[in-house]
């Protein structure tokens, strides 16, 4: 007799239990994840650039249900003045989750986690920016999580990197980011909230793909040496795909108009 699985909806289908009350596995024996993806498959990704008029640069990124809006202002003068660096620009970053981004209302005040992620994002992005070109100025990056479903810091980096490029701030390379995790013993990319909370490992990873330089590597959980190497390999492959999408999103904005004019000919 086959095992009859009954799915109890806790919250919005967040945890699935079988008849014995045990948690259902997040990945099946043939390697299909709870949302139907293969271990190395990204969620559907949508990127658009220049979505805010008031910001110098902006971008909107969706990775599955994770939705991020990023805005960049500057380079602009720093107040109070003593915070400015005399030889390079100061990068200020605010990662923030909207109160409605999670199931139970999140207080809009910056939490400890958000303060930490702001620092992590700043460090992951500032290495790509040519800061020396704008001494004693500030570049402000705002990353707003509209809906959170795992990998928000990685999606935040992807969005912020696009917004920086859109603002015309000189950068060595775009920064692409993707999380790799371990779920039920399998290494998987682009974790959802469910996989992040119930899995064994979460490893956010960001790199300047064209330069092959890593700008963010965190590891929450335990991986063996071999697993770690495999996880990094998977992250690099995932970052490549995201990097290509970022390039495409930046170019598309200008190419659609060009095509419509040139396609229309001289009429």
């Amino acid at each position: 007799m086959g095992v009859c699985l009954e799915e109890y909806q806790l919250g919005e289908g967040k945890v699935r239990l079988n008849m014995a009350g045990e948690q259902r596995r997040l990945i099946s024996d043939d390697g299909v994840r709870h949302d139907g993806r293969r271990p190395d498959e990204l969620r559907p990704i949508k990127m658009s650039v220049g979505v805010l008029k008031n910001a110098n640069g902006s971008a909107y990124v969706e990775q599955g249900n994770t939705k991020i809006l990023a805005a960049v202002y500057g380079p602009r003068s720093v107040h109070p003045r003593h915070l400015a660096y005399p030889d390079k620009a100061r990068v200020r970053c605010r990662y923030h989750m909207a109160p409605f981004s999670v199931e139970t209302r999140k207080s809009p005040a910056p939490s400890r986690r958000e303060v930490e992620l702001s620092k992590v994002l700043r460090e992951a992005l500032s290495h790509a920016i040519l800061l020396e070109q704008f001494p004693s100025t500030a570049i402000d990056i705002f990353v707003e999580v509209l809906e959170a479903d795992g990998s928000t810091r990685c999606a935040g980096i992807n969005a912020a990197s696009l917004a920086l490029a859109d603002a015309g701030i000189p950068m060595k390379d775009l920064v692409a980011a993707c999380a790799v995790g371990k779920v039920d013993g399998y290494l998987v990319v682009d974790l959802t909230d469910l996989e992040d909370k119930n899995g064994e490992v979460d490893m956010p990873f960001a790199m300047m793909y064209g330069k092959r330089k890593v700008t963010l590597l965190q590891l929450d959980g335990k991986l063996s040496y071999e697993e770690f190497l495999k996880a990094v390999d998977m992250a690099v492959v995932a970052c490549e795909r995201i990097y290509m999408m970022q390039k495409e999103a930046l170019k598309q904005r200008y190419l659609t108009l060009r095509k419509s004019i040139e396609g229309g000919g001289s009429t």
Binding site: A128, P170, K211, K251
Partner: peptide, 8 residues
């Protein structure tokens, strides 16, 4: 051609 940061 339209190019983006980091493009060779």
């Amino acid at each position: 051609d339209v190019v983006v940061p980091g493009e060779l």
